[in-house]
Design a binder for these strands. Sequence first.
DNA 1: CGAACCTTTGAGTTA
DNA 2: CAAAGGTTCG
Length: 813
Amino acid sequence: MTEPNKKPPYDVPSHQPAAGGIAARARATAAPQYLSALNPEQREAVETLDGPVLVLAGAGTGKTRVLTSRIAHILSMGRARPNEILSVTFTNKAAREMKHRLSEMLGQAVEGMPWLGTFHSIGGRILRFHAELVQLKSNFTVLDVDDQIRLLKQLLQAENIDDKRWPARMLAGLIDGWKNRGLTPSQVPSGEAAVFGNGKGGKLYAAYQERLKILNAADFGDLLLENIRLFREHPDVLRQYQNRFKFILVDEYQDTNVAQYLWLRLLAQAPPSPAAITDSTTTPGLAAPKNICCVGDDDQSIYGWRGAEVDNILRFEHDFPGAKVIRLERNYRSTGHILAAASHLIAHNEGRLGKTLRTEDVDGEKVTVTGSWDSEEEARGIGEEIEQLQRTGNKLNEIAILVRASFQMREFEDRFVTLGMPYRVIGGPRFYERAEVRDALAYLRVINSPADDLAFERIVNVPKRGLGDATLQLLHDIGRKRKIPLMEAARSLVETDELKPKPRSSLREVIANFDRWRAQRDVVPHTELAEIVLDESGYTEMWQKDRSADAAGRLENLKELVRSMEEFENLHGFLEHISLVMDREGGADEDAVSLMTLHSAKGLEFDNVFLPGWEEGLFPHQRALDEQGRAGLEEERRLAHVGITRARKRAKLFFATNRRIHGSWSTTIPSRFLDELPADNVEITESKGGSGWGGAGGYGASRFDNVESFGSSYSTPGWQRAQANRGRGGFDETGGRYDAGGRSSAGSRKTMTIEGELIAKSTGTESDFVLGDRVFHQKFGYGNVAKIDGNKLTIAFEKAGEKKVVDSFVTKA
DNA sequence: CGAACCTTTGAGTTA
DNA sequence: CAAAGGTTCG
């Protein structure tokens, strides 16, 4: 047992006055600077400190400013100390941003804001203080999706369930969904639990939770669910936190799921309310809700598929009686046309709380819609426009391409590489998801927690040591029979002669290695230990010997991993952090185009925003429609709204008539969202050969009728118009793809065509490079030629990873 | 046991 | 078209 009252190490000594310097400054002037910079609504949101407050903050209305100013206000009024404010966000990025802005506002006084973070990191922190109460140890591991799936596969096997018919992924999805709804195994409705594995779903969920405890592990959902369980089963612990948090602030409230809502509600109750701790999710009317302030925008709710309940925000006044609702409708970001386009689009949704964004900015440029023949041409066109913007003095940092699905990104990457255009992918394949990083982490996890079977299993035969399925099976059998971790099973197995000499000695070596490393853990600095481990395990060597193209990049990633460990005091601290926050930053200082999904763009803004792929089936995405019907469509529409409102000066939409889906080309039709844009604020740019899509008459009075009639059969007027236009517009099937109509814009297009042909034709000509040549590229630096295809080279760059480039862009080094 | 080859299936968004 | 899973052969 640990003492439940163990204090978090972040506690500020109690004699310290609440952010003294600020308070003093606040008293000195009548209206402190952080208040005078606000408009009346914002100011009201900041100054209404008591009771529940809901701030409906439309895109670009100063949401973050309100949150940070509110914290500053609480502190300067002396209403709470920094460690008595709970402030939750969804992403680490948002948390970082708030800390950053707060420190600008307050000077250096943010050190003591220990409870500003994401739901998951705060949940995880609370859980570590009381781990024993939920059958964990404080050094529990946070599993990622991969570990989760492997664990579930084992359970399926144990239950003799065919994982073809009942994939582990599906079960993981179900469990995730239950956890998002705050349901422990016993709370899952039996009907739902039965849908998986011939009625074994519920049993498997229970078994999974049990296994997690044995492994001393929690998955993402547990960080909240186990927290809720902790609070419910131990009211004394809950009270401790209720007492601590004098003020609660929630960012992006529209994205909270049921579990997060329950968690917040428990914490938001006034401390002495012993009767109110119930497990009901629906009972309204809490006893004296505390000072909770939720900020959100129902029009930006885009995480329904992850369990977010827009209802949470729609029901706020009901859940928190006496709540004050404040609307922020002054947009400080976008020009008039952009804002009008976005507002009209989102007006097609029903069930909104309703806000009318307005701006005092100029109308600016109209939103453009451009059609192209296929996705390649779309990428070329956007590339050209970006070059044009660059020539006219726009910073690449102020340009973003926002896609619906990540597979769309490749085309742009290829294009940018060819053009030598600097770009960065945001939220792409994450650093910690890379195989080599996960392998390295697995080694460290086993050192840190010998019972971490999943980590053990991952690396026991990496690099290859002749310990294959057969050996592993044996270990599993022993482990399961004796209820001991695999490492212990291995220990006893090498004492017997059940193994052939070869695997036996390598297993012996693995055990000895880990024992040695663990002994070094307290002696050697953790970064050094990591290097020792990677070296002695043969892991580094494995990649050094690997001749494949990306080996160099992987070694680079390993180095970066070790480097990133320096920020932490010890191995344990590092591992604790890593599972939650391992997004690689850096490179932000460089001027580059940003490439990301619409989802990860929320909260960001750019002068120029390109939005490709506005086609039925892709955007709105077919699966959203199939699975969620009208709700799915509305969420997609909100996503479109988010996309357009990211733009300050220019929003440019695109659709292609042909797109590759599953490797083969399909014909697509323009998105219905394009049809929902207001004609007055939109310009159809001539893409090529004639009127292009839509044309002058394309927009008619019928634009807004009959939105309800969408369904599996596309019958809206817009759809039909779009189809008609497809034949009539510039996309004739017989003419060459690049058959331009002799316009100026077509001229440059034609140039591209020629370039395209040249590249295609010249592939017969072998380039001067030989496999393995060391080369230099202006943008990507040094690398080695990994593949040659005519004059197109695949190069493994030391820094940038593997890229395809045309040979003329590199020189021999 | 593991490399090489073949077949199948599947690309939606994420803390 | 790619990755992942399965099968075969050395």
